[in-house]
Amino acid sequence: MLDWLLEPLGFEFMRNALAVGVLIGILCPIIGAYLIVQRMSLLGDVMAHSVLPGLAIAFFLRINILIGAFVSGIISAFLIAWLRSQTRIKVDAAMAIVFSSFFALGILLLTLLRNKLDLDSFLFGDILGVTWQDVVRTALITAMVLLLVRVFYKELLFYTFDPLGAQAIGLPVESLYLGLMAAVTLTIIASMQTVGVVLVVAMLIGPGTTAYLLVKELHQMMGLGAVIGVVASVSGMYVSYYLNVPSGPCIVLLSFGLLLLALLFSPSQGLLTQHDRA
């Protein structure tokens, strides 16, 4: 058993992949908890696909593609907020419009600019290609986002559960919204190489939803979600190593498996436990 656990650690690429997987497993559920509570879970998917135009332009201009991704993500958040507040368009329609338009623009720019950006890696991730520099960058993003969440936890908590009340007492709700969107974008950027944008929403929402079925407080949901995210990430890496299959889908499917267990056996909300109590 010990040899089974230690063998993958003999390879540098596995050590780097596991380190990034742990960081992403912590970061995604903590940020995703805010989206779940606000019933904005699909916003993570919208933001994930909205970074593509920024990636294409940054790659063409030969600047850091992460800068382009961040700018593009923030612009999409501005656009969704503007459509919600200044028009009769509902939030789900606004997200659908931005999602499809930004993703189509990104594909068009990749063609027009003749970029050689690895679209498969962008969509599905390449965690086994993670370098030590990627680990350091992910660690810095994780530390910065978690520090900001800790500093502004009370304000974000109030805004998440009662945005109108937060506005009434004078909290800068627009700044809180954009700050949260910046955190979502940074989380997506940190996760792109791990699971790719197609699967990043599963890590943003899956572990947090599992925790939501098991606990009641937001801080408990964040903490338990982080634990579940780490378990899914590490377990998925080991499964992908020994079965020689892609790591991103393994991580996501294990996260989904844990969600199914919580859905069935949660003490307060489980389908089977509720039947037993009846």
Rank of each mutant, 00 (worst) to 15 (best):
4 W>F: 12
8 P>I: 11
9 L>Y: 13
20 V>R: 02
21 G>T: 10
23 L>V: 03
24 I>S: 11
35 L>C: 11
37 V>L: 15
40 M>R: 06
52 L>N: 08
53 P>A: 04
53 P>R: 00
59 F>T: 04
62 R>W: 13
66 L>D: 01
67 I>K: 04
75 I>Q: 00
75 I>V: 14
80 I>S: 06
80 I>T: 10
82 W>I: 10
83 L>I: 06
84 R>A: 07
89 I>V: 15
91 V>I: 13
91 V>Q: 14
103 F>W: 07
103 F>E: 05
110 L>H: 06
112 L>M: 13
115 N>I: 02
116 K>G: 14
117 L>Q: 09
123 L>C: 04
132 W>I: 01
138 T>P: 01
143 A>C: 04
146 L>F: 09
150 R>Q: 07
154 K>Y: 07
156 L>C: 01
163 P>Q: 03
163 P>I: 02
164 L>V: 13
171 L>G: 09
174 E>M: 07
175 S>Y: 09
177 Y>E: 09
177 Y>H: 12
185 T>M: 02
186 L>A: 05
188 I>K: 06
201 V>Q: 01
203 M>S: 06
207 P>G: 13
223 G>H: 06
229 G>K: 02
234 V>W: 05
241 Y>T: 09
241 Y>D: 09
244 N>L: 09
249 P>I: 08
258 L>G: 00
268 S>K: 14
269 Q>H: 15
271 L>Y: 07
